[in-house]
């Protein structure tokens, strides 16, 4: 296959990768910089990682982000799954179009608009801005992503599985927990991971919805960068990249192995 490696193809791949990853690679490299000057290489060192863990402000922000991420992703997954079920199952209720429009609008809504409207709401109902409001805001905007992921799985879900369970004596609630939920679980897990990632890297909405004592990591980093980029920030970002990369790679490896195993099983069954 020499057509696969023409000069054009190679250069577009190199350019594409450079475009995507050069900034990240630079960031990672400079997180190991000895010098305090971010753009001048002063030798290899891991000292910024050490000082990162001693930076109370950053560590607090990381802790807030982790908690907001876990809580908001979990609640958004429950709500998003329920919305997806409603949208695929009860196709004839009044106001369905409106409901689905409302569920999916945040996907295309500019974050500034979402953030501002949430802020106005919190002020109007007199809710003090802080941990609770950021979490609520994250639930609001990540729920629709979960709904999309779960809904696309539900569309191909074979309803006769549920009918078979009921036919065998399982009432609807038992059917849901014993059949529906386990079968769509992979989609729900991906939905959760997506929601968690979205919460992890959100800056705009958090800036509107957060208040004193609930500074998230992206907010903290952004505010520090305005005072000048320190290698410490590079180290923090490198760790975030590491966490996300490990998660993504692990998920895709698990998926791939499962897929290969499944194909093998199916072939074996066909031969038998």
């Amino acid at each position: 296959m020499n057509s696969g490696w023409s000069r054009f193809n190679i250069s577009s791949i190199v350019l594409g990768f450079a475009f995507l990853y050069l900034p990240i690679v630079l960031l990672i490299i400079f997180s190991f910089n000895e010098s305090k000057l971010v753009t001048v290489w002063g030798g290899f060192s891991t000292k910024w990682y050490g000082s990162l863990f001693n930076n109370q402000g950053l560590m607090d922000a990381a802790w807030v982000t982790a908690r907001v991420g876990v809580i908001s992703a979990t609640v958004a997954t429950v709500l998003g799954t329920m919305a997806a079920l409603t949208l695929t199952r009860y196709t004839r209720f009044r106001g369905r179009i409106l409901f689905s429009g409302m569920v999916f609008a945040p996907l295309v809504m500019p974050e500034v608009v979402t953030g501002l409207s949430l802020l106005l709401l919190f002020v109007a109902i007199g809710l003090d801005r802080g941990f609770l409001t950021v979490t609520l805001a994250h639930i609001t905007f990540s729920m629709c992503f979960v709904a999309v992921v779960v809904q696309s799985r539900l569309v191909s879900f074979d309803r006769s599985l549920e009918e078979a369970a009921m036919d065998l004596g399982a009432p609807p609630v038992k059917t849901f927990f014993q059949i529906t939920l386990p079968v769509i679980a992979p989609a729900i897990v991906s939905g959760w991971m997506l929601a968690f990632t979205l919460s992890l890297d959100d800056l705009v909405i958090a800036s509107f919805a957060s208040g004193p004592g609930a500074t998230t990591l992206p907010m903290k980093i952004y505010s520090q960068v305005r005072l000048g980029v320190t290698p410490e920030i590079n180290a923090a970002c490198t760790l975030m990249i590491g966490v996300v990369a490990v998660g993504v790679i692990a998920a895709s490896l698990i998926n791939k192995r499962r897929e290969i195993q499944r194909q093998r099983d199916e072939q074996a069954a066909q031969r038998a």
């Binding site: 006769s160 599985l161 036919d167 399982a170 079968v183």
Partner: peptide, 20 residues
């Protein structure tokens, strides 16, 4: 009378085996 209270069972055209 809902399906789960009827003394009949059905074998489905698609088999509908529980994949998990």
């Amino acid at each position: 009378i809902p399906p789960y209270r009827r003394p009949v069972n059905m074998m489905f055209q698609s088999y509908a085996l529980f994949p998990h």
